[in-house]
Design a binder for these strands. Structure first.
Lengths: 145, 145
DNA sequence: ATATAATATTTCGTATGCGAAATATTCGCT
DNA sequence: AGCGAATATTTCGCATACGAAATATTATAT
């Protein structure tokens, strides 16, 4: 006698999201960095120049949300905004002074967190998780419902 | 050449969560209700008395977050707070006047949204999604990190 | 019986998070 | 060339969302 699958799925997504945020916050409790701030810093370690809208897409956030996150990272000296010369509407985000020493460490900390999510799972289980999520994503995006 | 599975999973969770919120907002665009407000109203249609902490657990939110959501629902007359006599620390949440006429309709709208998540999926696909999510949830909760 | 611990909720300060509107720039059409 | 549409980002107002601290009440230990 289970609840309907849609309700179960919605509830699991919320729960997983909450646990992931909790763990990410814990991983950076010594710094003052928040989960989305960490993710921006992580992404900048892999690609040293990102447009605001690239960050929004990668994180599934609205541009306005990302703009606020960047304000706070910029005011603390973690990133800088650089106007593109080719297209002056575009703003490139780059690492700044506060990351000179610690960027590699922050990147590794997030990478460890991400690796930890599936630690202990064998390949079959990992595939089951990824497949399940991709299937769900595709269903959500395709119904015009 | 895929990115590591932890990163893929984290990204999918964010994406799915964003799409679900977007659709829920769309389903209630005529009312002024927000997604968490709708979920509280939905839950109150299935159980007419809920403790604040019951709501927090079911929605995977902090009590302080729920308290704020309830403030706004209460001030608009959707719910009321009733102190328990048996234990005066406890606050029960119940539907109020603004739900007299529309509670069943709101419940049905959320139920439709939830049903729609898996609409068009056959049983095997639904099981794959639910299993994948449950496996992920269990891994996240069991590593001590 | 009473101090102390535990529990339930609220309050507070701050950081997301969104959509709509504003701003600035580039594109497309003619 | 120039004007209206399209694009990229920011600003604004508001609603989450969290943890820590405050408040109120109940349970527990002695």
């Amino acid at each position: 006698m289970k609840k309907n699958p849609g309700a179960e799925i919605a509830s699991l997504i919320k729960e997983i999201n909450a646990v992931m945020n909790y763990r990410l916050r814990e991983a950076f409790k010594d710094s003052q960095l928040t989960p989305p701030q960490m993710m921006v810093i992580f992404m900048l370690a892999e690609e040293t120049q990102l447009k605001v809208s690239d960050i929004s897409k990668k994180m599934s956030l609205a541009n306005s949300t990302v703009s606020g996150i960047l304000d706070r990272l910029e005011s603390q000296g973690y990133i800088k905004r650089v106007r593109s010369n080719a297209d002056k509407r575009v703003v490139y985000i780059e690492p700044a002074e506060q990351l000179n020493d610690l960027h590699a460490f922050y990147h590794q900390t997030v990478a460890n967190f991400l690796a930890n999510i599936v630690e202990g799972a064998d390949e079959k289980q990992v595939n089951k998780m990824v497949d399940g999520l991709q299937t769900l994503r595709d269903f959500l995006k395709n119904d015009e419902g």
